[in-house]
Amino acid sequence: MEHFWQWFSGLFANWGVVWNNFDYLLVGAYPQGPLGGLAMSIVMAVIGIFGAFWIGLAAGLMRISKRPWLSWPALIYIEIIRGTPLLMVIFWFYFFAPLLMNQSVPETESAIAAFIVFTGAYIAEIVRAGVLAIPKGQMEAARGSGLSHTQAMVHIILPQALRNMIPSFVNQFVSLTKDTSLAMIINVNELTLAARHVYTRTMKAPMEIFLTIALLYFAICWVLTAFSRRLERSMARYQARTSHDR
């Protein structure tokens, strides 16, 4: 019994390390210092997914174009990125961006650029598949009524395709949220690096600290996945109803 209490109070004390540094894990030194921790992870993931959406939309549409000068660059971009580990892309941007731009680029910005370019390639494939999944009759009806190809895309094809793609986008967002932890390698103060800071500063309670951040990642991804499931269910309903229309 005595042993148990010793062990238990020790555990309690160690959770205290987490508790005392919880704000640092959540927001870094903010508002006195720079933003960091979980907030930084989320900021990078959100900016990353929005940037990747536009790049992926453009690349995905270029990829299905009949014009080779549009489809080839998109194909090369997509295939190169999909065959490269994210860590490598992070290094490219970290080492080459300053050389290219002839000035220093902050780590956070170069990490976000890497996330955008990396995730964009996957979104491009989602967009391509989504557009190709729309029945051909939709484009024919639209063109047949006098709409231009672009108008048909904007008003008929993309609204349907993008709606069907929402669950896949959420999945990419979940992946990206976890992958932001790789940015610690170039010293971006996101959640994983913040945890390491706390540990090196206190030299205590590694288990508790890393368990806490694992739970934080899990909580975010779980909420997003649950949201995605719900969307998928309502999408399934929408599709079941529209399949009648083909």
Binding site: P135, G137, Q138, E140, A141, A142, G144, S145, I156, Q160, R241, T242, D245, R246
Partner: peptide
């Protein structure tokens, strides 16, 4: 033009 499969925009 009117198609066999209607092709309305769902």
């Amino acid at each position: 033009i009117v198609f066999q499969q209607f092709n309305l925009y769902p």
